[in-house]
């Protein structure tokens, strides 16, 4: 969970968030490119979550497994739900929704890292 992929995910989320917030500030609705970028980013997050799930069957299982699982489900679903809502809102506010989704995601990844670092003996 604390590998380079997490760092890449967080950086990508922040770059995308900045882009979407700029789009919202410029009064632009989410374009096809914006939604495609969200889809690609969702795939990256999915890879991260799958690796974390595989890790659950290893020897370093987080002591708070239920919370970890809850955060994993939230994490994998968050950007797709944001993109879905953004498609329903084809105005600048749709771009803001994408921006907020991308701002929340690093928080989720950081929480996952926190929970993963506590491995009960």
């Amino acid at each position: 969970m604390n590998g380079p992929l997490s760092v890449v995910t967080i950086v990508a989320a922040l770059v995308l968030a900045a882009w979407y917030l700029l789009r919202a500030a410029l009064n632009r609705a989410p374009s096809r490119f914006d939604l495609l970028a969200a889809a690609v980013f969702s795939a990256l997050v999915a890879v991260l979550v799958v690796i974390a799930v595989v890790g659950l069957f290893g020897d370093s299982r987080p002591s708070d497994t239920a919370t970890f699982g809850g955060y994993l489900i939230t994490t994998i679903a968050f950007v797709p739900v944001g993109a879905y809502l953004a498609r329903l809102e084809p105005t600048r506010w749709g771009s803001l929704i994408l921006g907020i989704a991308c701002l929340v995601l690093p928080v989720l990844v950081l929480r996952l890292q926190q929970i993963a670092s506590v491995t009960g003996a």
Binding site: L85, G94, L96, I97, I100
Partner: peptide
Amino acid sequence: GLGRVLLLVYGI
């Protein structure tokens, strides 16, 4: 639209 964004944040 702005209200929906507000609702999204409140919902989160």
